[in-house]
């Protein structure tokens, strides 16, 4: 055993000093030849060592720098393509133009830029920058489609999920459309928007500038920094809600502020954040148990450990399925 240990350790010296499968050390060679297993293992180590060298060599290719090039070329090409189409259509539609006038043509034929779609999976968040310079931090399970409308000169975003927007100032209005015909119009501001299809309320919290929240009819809310505007999907009403702005922004630090939040609502948020499925064993647990406090845990395991400590729930975790039940009441004696 001692002997084996000693010879095996030679492998590392060998790999560092003489590459390849041969060796000049007779003792070591003897060890390799003495058993087919030694030989097999040795060749595996050589393969690993060479593989590491190849990976190390690859570090010289920097995808970050290359991506800038590629991104730049693609953005440039998209612009050229759009321009080309305008010129082409201009010729084709010349006779029409004489009759109908340039503005009509421009309205109907000017192509938009290509839509850009950005999504985040459940359990992940990411920061993205849109072509106009606007940056958006996307929370788990969100989808954003950006398109510049040349005809109306507006920046259009179709959005579901949650995101913190830092909108680049620009003459073209930035319009975010959500479910239920709700839309948010801004020029250059910072705001948080939470609009998950499975939430009962859509809400936006402004941190800087000014936004307008419109419903599908004519109602609208004008928000100033620190204010939160909400839309209740059940009643169809828009209203200012009294909320602590930083609670609504805390998801960016993966903190969950709970202000008398029902277990059901907590579970829905955890499902998105950690990509798990939570089911309740027993009636009305989700509605009956409420929490107030802050949750900031590394993993879903830690989250449930914490919830278990502060409330009357038990839980079992099975892969990504989590079942929550009421803690068994101990008989009083």
């Amino acid at each position: 055993m001692k002997e084996k240990q000693k010879q095996e350790e030679h492998i590392i010296d060998h790999l560092q000093n003489e590459m390849g499968s041969g060796t000049t050390d007779p003792e070591f060679q003897h060890w390799i030849d003495s058993a087919s297993e030694n030989k097999k293992n040795f060749s595996k180590y050589v393969k690993i060592w060479e593989g590491i060298d190849i990976l190390a060599e690859r570090k010289k290719y920097k995808p970050e720098n290359a991506w800038e090039q590629v991104n730049y070329q693609i953005v440039k090409q998209t612009r050229i393509a759009s321009r080309f189409k305008i010129i082409f259509l201009y010729g084709a539609a010349a006779t029409l133009l004489i009759l109908l006038g340039f503005s009509f043509y421009f309205n109907w034929f000017a192509p938009d830029t290509e839509p850009l779609k950005l999504t985040t999976e459940l359990g992940s968040r990411s920061k993205v920058v849109l072509p106009d310079g606007t940056s958006v931090m996307l929370n788990a399970g969100s989808e954003l489609i950006y398109q510049f409308d040349r005809r109306k000169r507006t920046r259009n975003v179709q959005f579901s999920g949650e995101g913190y927007f830092e909108v680049e100032k620009n003459k073209a209005p930035f319009i975010v459309r959500m479910q239920e015909g709700l839309r948010l119009t801004v020029l250059g501001t910072k705001f948080n928007l939470s609009a998950y299809p499975d939430d009962a309320v859509i809400k936006t919290t402004l941190t800087e500038g000014k936004v307008e929240l419109h419903d599908s009819k004519t109602e609208l809310l004008v928000l100033t920094p620190g204010q939160t505007g909400s839309f209740d999907k059940n009643s169809g009403k828009l209203y200012y809600s009294a909320e602590e702005p930083r609670y609504n922004l805390s998801w960016m630090e993966k903190k969950l502020y709970m202000d008398n939040m029902s277990l059901k609502n907590v579970a829905r948020i955890l499902e998105r954040w950690y990509d798990v499925e939570i089911t309740f064993a027993g009636e009305n647990i989700g509605e009956n148990i409420h929490y107030t406090g802050v949750l900031q845990e590394k993993s879903i395991f830690d989250v449930f450990k914490a919830l278990n400590e502060i409330s009357k729930i038990d839980y079992t975790i099975n892969g990504r399925n989590i079942t929550v039940s009421q803690k068994n009441k101990l008989p009083m004696n």
Partner: peptide
């Protein structure tokens, strides 16, 4: 996803394979 115009998936694919394709 790329075929459905998802630019962030395109970005991921690029970062994943750029170095190995270069080598």
């Amino acid at each position: 996803r790329i075929k459905q115009d998802d630019y962030s998936s395109f970005n991921l694919l690029f970062f994943k394979h750029y170095a190995s394709l270069c080598s």
